[in-house]
């Protein structure tokens, strides 16, 4: 039986530990397979999500376990929206500045690519800080 999904709204949550990020990836893969996303789109969504969640754990929670990292996956046939939320410290300004430049490869950087990758892969992106914490919205068009 063919199933056509009009809309999906899925909420995932992990503890703020890097070893739990793979669980989010597994859940995203399950969602992606169910919604018949291409391997390319799914890989791009996973990389955006993982980089964003790594930033939350490293910057908002400063690598402290015991905190909640939330990922909301909103699907429509046209786009997937990921909302990555936390209740940690305000993200460093430079992490969410409008102009994101990748580190120069010739400098042999060992980090600093995360937000740049998200900016390259996302069709839209915005960051909100409110009383509940940090919320990063990223969208990927499917058509």
């Amino acid at each position: 039986m063919d199933t056509t999904y009009k809309h999906y709204d899925i909420r995932l949550s992990i503890d703020s530990r890097l070893e739990q990020v793979r669980v989010l990836s597994g859940a995203l893969h399950g969602i992606g397979k169910e919604l018949q996303l291409s391997d390319d789109k799914l890989g791009q969504l996973e990389l955006m999500m993982v980089e964003a969640v790594n930033n939350v754990i490293e910057h908002a929670y400063e690598l402290q376990a015991g905190n909640d990292v939330r990922v909301r996956v909103e699907y429509s046939p046209q786009a997937v929206h990921l909302i990555i939320s936390d209740s940690g410290h305000t993200m460093p300004d430079e992490l969410h500045s409008e102009a994101r430049e990748m580190p120069n490869p010739e400098d042999l950087p060992e980090g600093g690519w995360g937000m740049g990758l998200i900016h390259l892969l996302a069709d839209s992106i915005h960051y909100i800080r409110d009383a509940k914490g940090n919320h990063l919205h990223v969208s990927k068009q499917l058509d």
Binding site: D40, Q44, N54, P109, G111, W113
Partner: peptide, 29 residues
């Protein structure tokens, strides 16, 4: 993810001009 890429860059620096660190078989994302 980019953390692992950073680890590989660190290793590339360790190898320096003394040898090679060739990445083979990377595909997809």
């Amino acid at each position: 993810d980019s953390s692992s890429l950073g680890a590989l860059v660190s290793l590339l620096k360790m190898v320096g001009n003394r040898g090679d660190l060739i990445v083979a078989g990377a595909k997809g994302i």
